[in-house]
Amino acid sequence: MEEPFHVADHLRDLAKAVHDVEEPFHVDLGDVALSRVLRALDDPTRLRMVTTMYELGECECSRAYAPLGLSKSNATNHLRVLRERGLVRRTQRGDQQYVVLRLAELESRLPRWLDSVLASVE
């Protein structure tokens, strides 16, 4: 007997497939000017998100923005900027999205830069 077709299941699978195709890869930090990396941090919200991620380590995306009271759409935009500028790496495990700072990669290009930036945060 053939399994019944569920539109909701099909749409969810289709949305995931489209999302996976559209999601840009993580940039090669060698291709990103350090000025672009640092400019991502001149937004106070993104700077606070980076501070939170620095304290938490790898975490669910929502934990990086929930303390700031941001809407999901606003936070998604900020996380996209941070990813496109090479500051974070985003991964998916099941239904959950995770984010982590690319500390080791960034430190190899600019030692102790994040310590200096975070020291200026009140």
Results as ranks from 00 to 15, higher is better:
residue 19 H to P: 02
residue 94 G to L: 15
residue 112 R to W: 02
residue 112 R to T: 14
residue 112 R to I: 02
residue 87 L to Q: 12
residue 9 D to Y: 03
residue 18 V to P: 10
residue 8 A to V: 14
residue 7 V to A: 06
residue 29 L to G: 15
residue 66 A to N: 08
residue 97 Q to H: 05
residue 34 L to F: 00
residue 79 L to N: 13
residue 87 L to V: 13
residue 18 V to K: 08
residue 24 P to W: 03
residue 13 D to H: 12
residue 113 W to G: 03
residue 75 A to I: 12
residue 36 R to G: 06
residue 110 L to N: 04
residue 81 V to M: 02
residue 27 V to Q: 06
residue 8 A to T: 08
residue 38 L to A: 15
residue 116 S to I: 03
residue 62 S to H: 06
residue 73 S to M: 12
residue 54 Y to Q: 14
residue 27 V to T: 04
residue 15 A to R: 13
residue 45 T to N: 02
residue 75 A to G: 08
residue 36 R to D: 14
residue 34 L to R: 00
residue 28 D to N: 12
residue 86 G to S: 05
residue 61 C to A: 15
residue 118 L to V: 09
residue 50 V to G: 00
residue 14 L to C: 04
residue 58 E to M: 07
residue 25 F to S: 12
residue 49 M to Q: 09
residue 98 Y to K: 13
residue 23 E to D: 09
residue 89 R to Y: 12
residue 20 D to S: 10
residue 8 A to W: 09
residue 25 F to H: 06
residue 69 G to T: 04
residue 60 E to D: 14
residue 1 M to T: 14
residue 20 D to F: 03
residue 122 E to H: 07
residue 18 V to S: 02
residue 50 V to N: 03
residue 21 V to T: 05
residue 76 T to A: 03
residue 59 C to Y: 01
residue 26 H to Y: 01
residue 11 L to A: 07
residue 52 T to A: 10
residue 115 D to K: 07
residue 88 V to Y: 05
residue 53 M to T: 01
residue 100 V to W: 02
residue 6 H to E: 14
residue 113 W to S: 10
residue 121 V to S: 05
residue 94 G to F: 11
residue 16 K to I: 02
residue 53 M to F: 01
residue 3 E to Y: 03
residue 37 V to P: 04
residue 39 R to F: 04
residue 7 V to I: 14
residue 40 A to I: 04
residue 11 L to P: 01
residue 4 P to Y: 07
residue 32 V to N: 06
residue 106 L to P: 12
residue 119 A to C: 02
residue 50 V to D: 05
residue 88 V to L: 09
residue 91 T to W: 02
residue 78 H to M: 03
residue 66 A to V: 07
residue 99 V to T: 13
residue 89 R to F: 09
residue 79 L to R: 09
residue 34 L to A: 04
residue 118 L to N: 09
residue 10 H to G: 07
residue 35 S to Y: 04
residue 35 S to F: 00
residue 52 T to L: 01
residue 22 E to R: 09
residue 91 T to C: 01
residue 66 A to Y: 08
residue 19 H to C: 10
residue 62 S to T: 10
residue 96 Q to P: 00
residue 122 E to T: 15
residue 87 L to A: 03
residue 48 R to Y: 00
residue 104 A to V: 09
residue 7 V to Q: 07
residue 56 L to P: 01
residue 56 L to K: 12
residue 28 D to C: 01
